[in-house]
């Protein structure tokens, strides 16, 4: 079947918000992954993604038919992200402990090299391969959003031991993701 996006765009341009909701459903994963890879706060990333879609709805008249709609929204999201990072920089003093620009730059390079949505999908398949105890830890930390202190209490370990346990999970996932991406490379 051919791409349904153009028909939804036509309907959304005429004010059909339900057609636009379908567009959002089709494109949101990539936009949210793009922003999530560049922001430490997942909820802030989702807020920006939501704003990006709302702005794109208001500016649908400017969208040129035949171009990629997800790429267009991604451009809007990119501008919002830039403004968000700028305003955060302006609001926080230079001695702020919350940012480490070198690390952010490295992360940006990694995200630029790969399609973020594909990274999320690869990460999902790697999560399924984790041993049970590590998968449960990931669930407690990222789904139940438990703090390190809560995790320490339930597992019975020190703060530093817990941060290291989580770090080992990340390293395992990183190795798995890199293997997948290397295998898939042409």
């Amino acid at each position: 079947m051919s791409d349904p996006l153009p028909a939804w765009i036509i309907a959304a341009r005429a004010g059909d918000t339900q057609a636009f909701v379908r567009l959002v459903e089709a494109c949101q994963a990539g936009i949210r992954a793009y922003l999530s890879a560049r922001l430490s706060d997942r909820h802030a990333a989702d807020d920006l993604a939501q704003n990006a879609f709302i702005i794109s709805y208001r500016r649908l008249a400017e969208f040129r038919d035949g171009e990629s709609f997800p790429a267009w929204v991604r451009g809007i999201a990119h501008n919002l992200l830039r403004n968000h990072l700028r305003s955060r920089q302006a609001q926080t003093p230079t001695q702020d402990a919350g940012s480490l620009s070198i690390l952010d730059d490295q992360a940006e390079r990694m995200a630029d090299r790969h399609d973020e949505q594909r990274l999320v999908e690869t990460l999902r398949s790697c999560l399924a391969k984790l041993p049970d105890d590590q998968r449960q830890l990931v669930h407690a930390r990222y789904v139940s959003e438990q703090s390190i202190e809560e995790l320490c209490k339930s597992v019975g370990c020190k703060h530093s031991a817990m941060t290291m346990m989580l770090h080992r999970v990340r390293m395992r996932l990183r190795a798995c993701v890199n293997d997948h991406l290397t295998e898939a490379a042409p």
Binding site: Q28, R32, A37, L39, Q50, L119, V120, R170
Partner: peptide, 24 residues
């Protein structure tokens, strides 16, 4: 840098499928 991206995307990767419809 790669580990930071993994950390940031873990929240997204562990999200339930129904979250996508709720977002839209």
């Amino acid at each position: 840098g790669e580990l930071l991206v993994i950390e940031r995307l873990l929240g997204r990767a562990t999200q339930a499928d129904d979250d996508e419809g709720a977002f839209a």
